[in-house]
Amino acid sequence: MASGREIKTKIKSTQNMRKVTRALEMVSAAKIRRAQDMMKASRPYARSMRKVIAHVAQASTDFSHPFLTQRENIARVGYIVVSTDRGLCGGLNSNLFRRLLPAIAEWHKQGVEVDVVAVGQKAISFFRRIKGVNLIGSVSHLGEKPKLEQLIGVIKVMMDVYTSNGLDRVFLAYNDFVNTMTQKPTIDALLPLPAVAAEMENTDGVKLEQTNEWDYIYEPDAQTVLEHVLARYVESLVYQAALENLASEHAARMVAMKSASDNANKVIDELTLIYNKARQAAITQEISEIVGGAAAV
């Protein structure tokens, strides 16, 4: 049986671990509120943007933008993957990557190449090790208050390749924040828009119906305005994804650290019991030795 001192050291180190997990849990619990507030604050913009885009899609303009035209042959696809910077958040990132890999493998089977833009340290270190996936852009350390400016770079990398016909489809992968207990790894179609509209019809039952023929007055002209609107649309979606992912990260970390603290408690209880038993056994043995010795005299 382990000596009392050994068990005591183990108890001490487990207590230290519990301190750390507790602290992490509380930090995330405090931050999740802000993350959720930011997520909510950005929703009206995303909603209005979707409406405008729906209108644009209905308007019978004679100008066709690459974002609006669906290409028949798919030779190359892009993924924007939003992950966390730090670990200790349960299976959050692994779950997302686990959903992504079969999709990527499927594209490979069809002879389609896959480009990836990574947001967050975890996605960067994951995708730089994967063969057959081109990491074309990345950004990390968005911090607790992601700003749209931080994401512009990676989005532009992806969109530039798309507009120059380098990519035929673009997807967005992130963890959707459902509630504190549930985060859903999600892969959404981002471009081209007809593919997005088709997906929206399938999943949400939203139908972008074609009403009477009408068109906007464009100022200065259709091309400039549409380019601008579509670029902003993509940016708002990616930004929204980054916020959702941040809230998910804190929620997942809170839950993971809570269960880690609970487990540490359990281990400490068990070890304390063993320690007390060992101590008692030692005392009993000592007494019986003394008694035995006295009887012998």
Binding site: G132, I136, G137, S138, V139, S140, V157
Partner: peptide, 19 residues
């Protein structure tokens, strides 16, 4: 900057793994 960061990440790639 985004491109550069990706290149840096790839330059430090340790071992590549199959999907």
């Amino acid at each position: 900057r985004a491109k550069k960061e990706a290149e840096d990440a790839l330059a430090h790639r340790t071992e590549a793994v199959d999907i």
